[in-house]
Design a protein around this nucleic acid. Sequence first.
DNA 1: CTCTGTGCAAAACTTTTGCATAGCC
DNA 2: GGCTATGCAAAAGTTTTGCACAGAG
Lengths: 130, 130
Amino acid sequence: MIYSKQRELLVSQLRRYRGHPTADVLYASVRSENPTISLATVYRNLNQLVDSGIVMRISVPGQADRFDDKNDGHQHMLCTECGGITDIPASALPDVCGTVSDNTGLHVSACNMIFYGLCKACEKKSQKNN
Amino acid sequence: MIYSKQRELLVSQLRRYRGHPTADVLYASVRSENPTISLATVYRNLNQLVDSGIVMRISVPGQADRFDDKNDGHQHMLCTECGGITDIPASALPDVCGTVSDNTGLHVSACNMIFYGLCKACEKKSQKNN
DNA sequence: CTCTGTGCAAAACTTTTGCATAGCC
DNA sequence: GGCTATGCAAAAGTTTTGCACAGAG
């Protein structure tokens, strides 16, 4: 993978966002600094970065993929109220792959999870309203 | 939800498949018995059935959704070799939601998982080749 | 100089939607 | 008869691809 300005810009914008942006949002963001970059380039680079393990893809069923620049095994929760994404650190997760491997005899190498629940902010709001 | 032939046919075809078919495959299958049914109807009915808890949606990142007629909390493993889907029974899974809730203080209500690994058949094959 | 990445536009693919009609209750 | 489901076609949304050109090594 040879160097490219576009990819560097993409990664720097991705790091800037804490909000787990979609390709779309990243595209807009990168475009504000480089108005001629194309959406195809954003997708191509994101795919490469995911393949190289530099970037993590968050697939939310029924929605566009989101991206995150860390790859430490953390997972994500989608707030059922506001649609925002909260990080679930790896340390809060049980060893699901290991458990499943032990219990089934299958060789499970990886697992994608997406949790659904209430984020801190929405939980606070719902408590106030009661 | 009033009765409809199409929905009945759809469910019966879904039950017939063990292979966790996509909407596409189901459409073809249903069409062989009722050539005028439309793809929109398949999608509409699948969505309804998922909402009613009769059918389970399996979201595989980057692929079309698949469907399964049971709703007992089991999850799925995608074989990295052949692309097939293996059921992971609920009894083989740890209580991920509970663990995450306990460890984070968040209210996690549900979780979608997709595992990646080798299915029995592909595991056998790879052992033979060694 | 060669090979990889980019830009543009078009295509591919999955899923949803509008509207008139047919079918259930 | 009223209300829901269907069929058809078109649209929407996300992601990929073909091709000619520009840029990195």
